[in-house]
Computed example of a mutant assay.
Amino acid sequence: MQTHPPAVHMVQLLSGFQVSQALYVAAKIGIADRLVDGPLTVQQLASDLDCEPLALSRLLRTLASLGVFTEVRPGRYGSTPLGATLVSDGDGSMRDLALSWMETHYAPFAGLLDTVHSGRPAATEHYGRPFFAWLADHPEQVGRFSRAMANLTNGVKTAAIAGYTFSGCRTIVDVGGADGALLAKILRATPGAAGTVLDLPHVVAEALPRLSAHGLGDRLAAIGGDFFEAVPPGADVYLLSMVLHDWNDSDATRLLANIRAAATPDSRVVALELVVPVGDEPHMSKMIDLTMLGMVDGRERTEAEMRRLFEAAGLAFERVVATPTPVSIVEAGIPVG
Rank of each mutant, 00 (worst) to 15 (best):
V19H: 08
L86G: 10
T70M: 09
L13K: 07
L49D: 06
I29D: 07
L40M: 14
S100K: 01
V87K: 00
A55S: 13
D33I: 15
H105Y: 14
S100G: 06
I31V: 15
Y77R: 02
S57P: 04
P53N: 08
I29A: 03
R58G: 05
D91E: 15
G16D: 08
P108F: 00
Q44L: 03
I31R: 02
V72C: 05
G75R: 05
T85D: 02
L99K: 01
Q18Y: 14
L35D: 03
L23Y: 00
S79D: 09
R34A: 12
T62H: 12
S79L: 06
V36Q: 10
S118C: 07
L99V: 12
G83E: 03
S88Y: 01
G38R: 01
R58Y: 09
L45G: 03
D37F: 04
R76E: 15
T80F: 12
V36F: 02
D48M: 10
G119D: 07
Q21A: 15
V42C: 11
V42P: 07
A27H: 01
A55P: 00
S118H: 07
P39R: 01
A27T: 01
L40P: 00
T80Y: 11
L99D: 03
A32M: 05
L86A: 12
V19K: 06
P81Y: 15
S15A: 15
Q44Y: 01
D50F: 07
G38F: 02
T115M: 09
D91Y: 09
F109H: 06
L56V: 00
Y77K: 03
V87L: 02
I29G: 02
A110F: 08
L112V: 06
L49C: 06
G75H: 06
A22N: 10
A46Q: 09
T115Q: 07
E52T: 09
G30S: 05
L86E: 04
S47T: 14
S93M: 01
L56N: 04
S57N: 08
V116C: 08
D37P: 03
S65A: 14
L45D: 02
D114K: 06
S79C: 08
F69C: 04
E52S: 08
L63D: 03
E103H: 06
S88T: 15
M102F: 09
D91K: 14
A84P: 00
Q18N: 13
H117G: 06
G75P: 06
G75K: 05
G16N: 11
T80H: 12
L59H: 04
T80E: 07
